[in-house]
């Protein structure tokens, strides 16, 4: 079986499991939405302030809650499943790629629901080039999926995983959060998103190379 086919099989498996369990879209997504509702309650009643911080809240909630999509339990493999994949000769890099693509797709759905909710709740000022948010959102989803899947494998079977994994992902995702926020600001000021988007592409490429290269040694930890 080719690398591409192996990755596609893993991707299909992950999406099918998600379809059955609904862990990402029926549990994590409402959790993220609840966070968007909670934030204005913790702030003074100032519509202008909420309108100003809305886009930032969107990215913060995407990163902080989206990471749980990449750690979802339903995407994890039991030692027996893992052994079986290994015996079948599944390339660890293909396994990693398939899982990253599955998480990316789920994160994009997550963002697609969060974005209109943010607009409704925070009423940010309308943007002329709002379509440019799409590539930024996709890059954030890919980057977060790459980091989250890597950390998920790194912390597999550890006792403190549920707290350790977010501690690792949160600071590592800063190179995605900062340019994403700057990109939105650039759209608002009509400065173009080329610089932040290119920076994010570089970060995503570096993460992809590290993820694929470390898939083999990480497989030996599980």
């Amino acid at each position: 079986m080719t690398f591409r086919r192996q990755a596609l099989v893993i991707l299909r498996r992950d999406l099918r499991i998600e379809g059955r369990t609904g862990e990402a879209l029926l549990i994590t997504l409402p959790f993220g939405l609840a966070a968007l509702f909670l934030i204005p309650l913790a702030l003074p009643l100032d519509t202008a302030l909420l309108s100003r911080i809305g886009p930032g809240m969107f990215w913060a909630v995407t990163l902080l809650f989206g990471m749980f999509i990449t750690f979802r339990q339903s995407a994890g493999e039991s030692p027996a499943q893992h052994e079986q994949l290994r015996m079948l000769g599944v390339d660890p890099a293909a396994r990693y790629t398939g899982r990253v693509i599955a998480s990316t797709l789920l994160l994009i759905v997550f963002e697609l629901v969060l974005a209109p909710t943010t607009i409704l709740l925070f009423a940010p000022e309308p943007l002329d080039g709002w379509l440019w948010i799409v590539p930024l959102g996709v890059l954030v989803a890919i980057g977060l999926a790459l980091i989250g899947t890597l950390v998920s494998d790194m912390t597999a079977s550890l006792r403190g995983r549920s707290t350790l994994a977010p501690l690792l992902v949160a600071p590592l995702s800063i190179p995605l959060l900062v340019p994403a926020a700057q990109g939105l600001e650039s759209i608002r000021t009509n400065n173009g998103i080329l610089v932040p988007a290119m920076f994010m592409v570089l970060v995503v490429l570096a993460l992809a190379v590290i993820g694929v290269m470390t898939a083999q040694p990480l497989e030996e930890t599980t």
Binding site: M154, P171, L207, I210, P217
Partner: peptide, 20 residues
């Protein structure tokens, strides 16, 4: 051994922050 392997990989990913 697991500790060394996992932390070696995280060390490599974390080093990306240094030039940043």
């Amino acid at each position: 051994t697991q500790r060394a392997r996992r932390s070696a990989i995280l060390g490599a990913v974390g080093a990306l922050q240094v030039p940043l």
